[in-house]
Design a protein around this nucleic acid. Structure first.
Length: 303
DNA sequence: AAGACGAAAGTGGTTGA
DNA sequence: TCAACAACTTTCGTCTT
């Protein structure tokens, strides 16, 4: 399937995985398409068929997606042997013990599988979103807690993993919007939001609403404005927070509006369109917010 | 021509019965 | 579960630079 992909640079087919350097590269022009891929192959090498037989254990690694893969042992619940005869008391006690251990093993190994799968999803997402390591760690810790509290059952691992990452971003005050997360996630925004609320409720977390301030640095750099504008926007935001103008408004919109005003005040005017693009809100929202800010803070912004 | 403006209708999420 | 509601979006015509 990889070979059918077309290199965006030279338009030729033939992408290959370079496992030693964990990259997907074009065999024609050498363009690195993706870094940090995972090697799904066996970790040993065989130089002839004898070695292969010797080293092969249970075949190729199984996918984490499918529970069990039929590899685990089943112990019948009836106290009969293969001929249908009753077991001796001694034998029966043994079977009881085996059953008990069997079920314990199953629980722990399925939890481990679940965790392994969730962690790869968290790693995948956070590398797409270019999130720092500490956020990944925080998300992983959160997910482990969800597993311990048995919150995953009945929900999709992908959804819960994405929700944990979203929560970790907010905890660490490096907010990514739900839109940004769901753009790369394998589940819909709706589900992530639902799972997020669920996790917060069940774990007794009480994260404050996102502070518009946390969006400023990212928006400012995407907009390409000077630090002066960012500083000005911060001032405006502080003032707005003091006057409690934020309640009920989307943090993105407020962050965008303050940047817009700041850009005008600092003579680095950006259009509403440009600002709305980086913040992913409409121009109308920016207009409404900046009107409010202007009125309430008594700023005279000459257009 | 591009940007800003604002009205009006539509959308998705929250809240409270 | 449903309706009411506020915030936000979409769309579009008009005004300003």
């Amino acid at each position: 399937m990889l070979r059918d992909k077309i290199c965006p640079e030279c338009k030729s087919k033939g992408l290959v995985q370079d496992y030693d350097r964990a990259e997907i590269v074009c065999s024609n022009c050498g363009l690195v398409i993706e870094e940090g891929i995972l090697d799904m192959g066996p970790e040993w090498r065989a130089f002839d068929s004898e070695q292969r037989d010797e080293r092969e254990r249970t075949g190729a690694p199984m996918t984490y997606m499918i529970h069990d893969k039929g590899l685990s042992t089943e112990i019948d619940w009836r106290n009969k042997d293969v001929h249908g005869r009753d077991l001796s008391p001694r034998r029966r006690a043994q079977v009881y013990r085996m059953r008990k251990w069997q079920s314990r093993m199953k629980v722990s190994s399925s939890a481990a599988r679940n965790l392994a799968f969730a962690l790869t999803e968290i790693v995948r997402l956070s590398s797409h979103l270019k999130l720092p390591k500490n956020i990944r760690e925080a998300a992983a810790v959160l997910y482990r807690r969800c597993l311990e509290e048995d919150l995953i059952r009945g929900r999709s691992i992908e959804g819960m993993a994405s929700a944990c990452l979203y929560a970790a971003c907010r905890q660490c005050r490096v907010p990514r919007t739900l839109d940004e997360i769901s753009e790369h996630a394998r589940v819909e925004k709706k589900e992530i939001a639902k799972d997020y609320r669920y996790i917060m409720r069940e774990l007794g977390f009480n994260l404050p609403p996102t502070n518009p301030m946390d969006y400023l640095p990212r928006f400012a750099s995407q907009l390409g404005v000077s630090p002066a504008v960012q500083r000005k926007a911060t001032e405006i935001l502080k003032e707005a927070i003091d006057r409690e103008l934020l309640s009920g408004r989307s943090p993105k919109g407020i962050a965008a509006a303050s940047l817009y005003i700041a850009s005008i005040l600092e003579d680095e005017r950006k259009t509403q369109r440009e600002v709305s693009d980086v913040a992913n809100v409409t121009e109308v929202t920016i207009r409404n917010r900046y009107k409010e800010l202007q009125d309430e803070l008594g700023l005279q912004v000459e257009i």
